[in-house]
């Protein structure tokens, strides 16, 4: 094992421990089991910590093969971010700008799936800082579903993390968060883009309604 890998493993442990200390995060598997299986998890995006929270509640054998899809401009902006994004999270980095990008993001995601990884997507495309529960979805997830129709697509609702660390604040406050995994879905035969995106959006929002601590 290389020094970088050892450092990455230590960093991963520290991040998971910190996430648990601050959020006491609880996973609710509501219609899907925490078992190794090739999946695309898609979640609401309110905070930079969203991916970390999902990653924390995954069993460790699943954690290592579950890669976040993240913005290259953010994760390549400093040495620390490059280390965390590449070595710790093994993120699939995509260029958000269609004009400058050299690789097709959907192709990048599809080849990550082909290599045996699962993915974590934030189909809103950006952090939601407004009053709306969920922004409209970008179309990438639909294109991924048409290219890899045999992969389970799992909605994941993250509750409360926007309160732990609102945008623009520098330190988190400790509050309990819940990560709720819903029933897997797939693209139906002949289902169009808008239908698929609105169906997946509804499935994600449905997890919010009983997202309280019970």
């Amino acid at each position: 094992m290389s020094v970088t890998q050892i450092l990455a493993n230590i960093a991963a442990m520290v991040i998971v421990l910190f996430a648990r200390l601050v959020t006491a995060v609880r996973a609710v598997w509501d219609g899907v089991e925490p078992i190794r299986s090739k999946r695309v998890y898609f979640a609401n995006h309110t905070s930079n910590g969203d991916f970390i929270l999902i990653w924390t509640v995954l069993p460790s054998n699943m954690r290592h093969e579950t890669r976040p899809v993240a913005a290259a401009d953010y994760w390549l902006a400093s040495k620390l971010r490059i280390f965390i994004g590449r070595e710790v999270f093994n993120a699939v980095l995509i260029d958000r700008n269609p004009e400058t990008r050299e690789k097709d993001p959907v192709g990048q995601m599809a080849s990550a799936l082909d290599e045996g990884s699962s993915l974590i997507l934030f189909p809103e495309g950006t952090r939601n800082t407004g009053d709306q529960a969920l922004l409209p979805f970008k179309s990438g997830m639909y294109h991924l579903a048409t290219q890899r129709p045999d992969v389970d697509i799992v909605p994941v609702w993250i509750e409360n993390l926007n309160r732990v660390m609102p945008k623009g604040e520098f330190f988190p406050i400790p509050l309990i968060c819940t990560v709720r995994f819903g029933e897997p879905m797939r693209l139906k035969d002949g289902e169009g883009k808008d239908d698929f995106l609105s169906r997946s959006r509804t499935a994600l929002l449905a997890l919010k309604d009983d997202g309280e601590l019970v």
Binding site: A24, N160, P166, F171, I173, P174, L175, I176, L213
Partner: peptide, 26 residues
């Protein structure tokens, strides 16, 4: 106390403007 307050303040009324108040409390 830390664990209890983390549970309590999860359920209380707060807004984004309370970030410093809550951080000071904790």
């Amino acid at each position: 106390s830390f664990a209890a307050m983390r549970e309590f303040l999860t359920l209380t009324a707060k807004s984004r403007a309370d970030h410093y108040v809550l951080a000071t409390a904790f």
